[in-house]
Each structure stands twice: as structure tokens, then as C-alpha cells.
């Protein structure tokens, strides 16, 4: 593991880590200042006003509104600077940029299963390129886990039934710790791994090195066909008895209860495992639940497939064109870089 030149600080390897450290040092500075102030004054008083005579009764000292106000208002102002600064970085931490490369993460007792959009799978290791924005879309098959990369100063719980996202941009190549930070049972402390940040070119080579695997979108398309989704939603998501899926991701749709909802990962997932929850306006409650029939990984693949569907076009190859051709390694780097290019 790399170490930082500043003692007692983990390696700093993301665009965010320096910002968090700066805030941390501010907090540490204020803490040291007040701890020294209070213990200094305390020590001074304790020595200066020690009991010299067992019978002495010191004169009572009246309170002071001025002092009380001062030591309420000043700490409050200092606290507000911490609050504002912390909230500002927090918003950067939790608002993923729209042009980030997506990577799917599924936690399960006790491993991290990771899949890149090109199909590359990893377990307990996450390879990422330096200098590109990465967005992790994460869920879990069982209990709550937490994806924690100390070197990037980020962490997010992975909650069953939900998708949580985490984004970062690595700045320094290296191998960093990946921890599960939410207690998850017997082998919790074994649910660890590494994040490998690589130069973009090295990363692209790595990504193309083992490209026999299907991309999640293609795998998703196969599941889509196997489960018979196509009979209602159309083979390319053009719709039918069920709502059209092409280009639906990210759009606002009207529901039959008069409300509207933005189609995101969570809504698509819910519509598969609990289809009656939020019906699109104009469609009846005819879809059966797929709860228990699809794993979290398969759900993510279906999700990738739906995301890849554009506004209805007759050719089904549209879905495959955004991902590399599996058999041609030479094409892969360029294709893999497509989402990343958009990010730069």
C-alpha cells in the first residue's frame, strides 16, 4: 500500500480526498486549539487557586451574560463554518456527474462482485482508470454491506432492495484498500479487496485482456428474452401490452395514479420485482412479479439492457453497438473508452 507523506493520513488518491483532508485538518486544528485552551486554563486555575488553607471560603463570583453569550456565539459560528464546508463537499460526493463510466457492484456475504459495462467481471478487486469519472451502481443480495475506499475518502452502504451510487475520479495509480464497512456477519473482516487505479491506457489494455465475457447489456438482453419480457414490451422495447422501454431511462413518466416519476435504476428494479407498485398510466396490472426469479446481478444486466435501448428503432443491434464486439480485442479499447470519452 502506498502511504502519504503526511503522517496518520491514508493515501490520497482521488479528486475528493484532498478536499476531505483539508477539512479534516481544519477540524483537527480547531480541536487541538480548544483542547489546549481548556486544559491550559484548567491547569492554570487548578494550580493557581489550589486550596492553601482548609478553612478558606472563596468569594462567590457572579455569572456574566457577556461571557455566556461569547462562548455560545463563537462556538456556534465556528460550528457553522464546519457545517457549510462539510455540506459543500458532501454534495460533490453524492451528486455523480452525468458523464461517468458506470460499473456494477453487487455485495454478498462475503465478497464484492463487480462487472464493467464491457462485461469484464472481478471479485474483490476493482480496476479503474486514473483521470476518468467512475460511477458505481451498487446493491446487495443479502444483508447491508458498505463499500469503503479509504484512499478515495468515500463510502456508501449497499442496501438490499435499493441501488446506491458512489462516484469518484482516481488521481494516482496504485493499489488501495477496499473494505466492507458495515458489519455483515461471520466473515465481515474477510470482505476486503483492492482497488487498482491504472493509467487509462493500461486500463484499456486490461479491460480488453479478457473479453470473452458478455457485456451486461447483452446478457441482459438474453435474460429479457428468456423471461418472456419481449412478449409485452416488444423484442427491442418498442412496447405493446406493456409500456415501451426504448429511451425510457432518465425520462419522466406518468403513472396511473396521476403522479409522475423519473425512471431511474430504483424504479426499473421495483417494476420488475414488484410490478404493481407504480403502474405507468394507461397500462393494467397484468405483469407478474419476478421476485426470486432473477438475481441482483441479472437485474443489473436487465437494467443495463434497458439503458442501452434508445428510442424505438427496428434494428435490435442498436443495443449491441454501444459495447465492444466480444471477439475482436483490437476494437475493445476504443469501444470501452466510449463512455469514458464522454466523461473527459
Amino acid at each position: 500500500m502506498q502511504t502519504s507523506w503526511i503522517p496518520f493520513v491514508p493515501p490520497s488518491a482521488s479528486t475528493l480526498s484532498g478536499k476531505v483532508d483539508a477539512l479534516y485538518f481544519y477540524l483537527a486544528g480547531v480541536t487541538v486549539f480548544f483542547t489546549l485552551l481548556i486544559s491550559g486554563v484548567l491547569t492554570f486555575f487548578v494550580i493557581k487557586y489550589r486550596r492553601r488553607n482548609p478553612y478558606e471560603i472563596p468569594r462567590p463570583v457572579a455569572g456574566s451574560l457577556k461571557l455566556e453569550t461569547m462562548w455560545s456565539v463563537i462556538p456556534f459560528i465556528i460550528a457553522m463554518t464546519m457545517f457549510a464546508w462539510g455540506a459543500q463537499i458532501f454534495f460533490q460526493q453524492w451528486r455523480p456527474p452525468t458523464n461517468a463510466v458506470e460499473i456494477y457492484v453487487v455485495g454478498k456475504q462475503w465478497m464484492w462482485k463487480i462487472q464493467h459495462t464491457t462485461g469484464q467481471r472481478e471479485i474483490n478487486e476493482l480496476h479503474v482508470p486514473v483521470g476518468r469519472k467512475i460511477k458505481l451502481i451498487m446493491t446487495t443480495e443479502d444483508v447491508i454491506h458498505d463499500f469503503f475506499i479509504p484512499a478515495f475518502r468515500i463510502k456508501a452502504d449497499v442496501v438490499p432492495g435499493r441501488y446506491t451510487t458512489l462516484w469518484f475520479e482516481a488521481t494516482k495509480p496504485g493499489r488501495y484498500h477496499l473494505f466492507c464497512a458495515e458489519y455483515c456477519g461471520m466473515n465481515h473482516s474477510g470482505m476486503i479487496g483492492s482497488v487498482v487505479a491504472m493509467d487509462p491506457t493500461a486500463f484499456d489494455d486490461w479491460l480488453s485482456g479478457n473479453s470473452s465475457q458478455q457485456s451486461p447489456a447483452i446478457a441482459g438482453q438474453q435474460i429479457y428474452e428468456t423471461l418472456g419480457c419481449a412478449s409485452c414490451h416488444g423484442p427491442t422495447g418498442e412496447g405493446g401490452r406493456g409500456p415501451a422501454l426504448g429511451g425510457i431511462f432518465g425520462r419522466q413518466v406518468f403513472l396511473n395514479n396521476g403522479q409522475s416519476i423519473k425512471v431511474d435504476e430504483a424504479y426499473i428494479r421495483e417494476s420488475i420485482v414488484n410490478p404493481q407498485a407504480k403502474l405507468v398510466a394507461g397500462f393494467g396490472p397484468i405483469m407478474p412479479t419476478f421476485q426470486g426469479q432473477v438475481s441482483e446481478e441479472q437485474l443489473m444486466q436487465i437494467l443495463a439492457f434497458i439503458k442501452s435501448l434508445q428510442i424505438q428503432t427496428p434494428e435490435p443491434v442498436r443495443a449491441a453497438s454501444s459495447v465492444p464486439a466480444p471477439s475482436a480485442p483490437s476494437v475493445a479499447p476504443a469501444a470501452a473508452a466510449t463512455p469514458g470519452t464522454a466523461g473527459r
Binding site: Y24, F34, F148, K155
Partner: peptide
């Protein structure tokens, strides 16, 4: 004072559960 670290959103993200 270290409670303030935990009340500070961005720092909490890094140090919580540690």
C-alpha cells in the same frame, strides 16, 4: 470535539464505521 468531525458530512462519510 471529535463529535464535530462526525457531524461534518464529508468527514463523516470517511470516518463512520471506522
Amino acid at each position: 470535539m471529535t463529535g464535530l468531525f462526525l457531524a461534518t458530512l464529508a468527514v463523516n462519510v470517511h470516518v463512520t464505521d471506522t
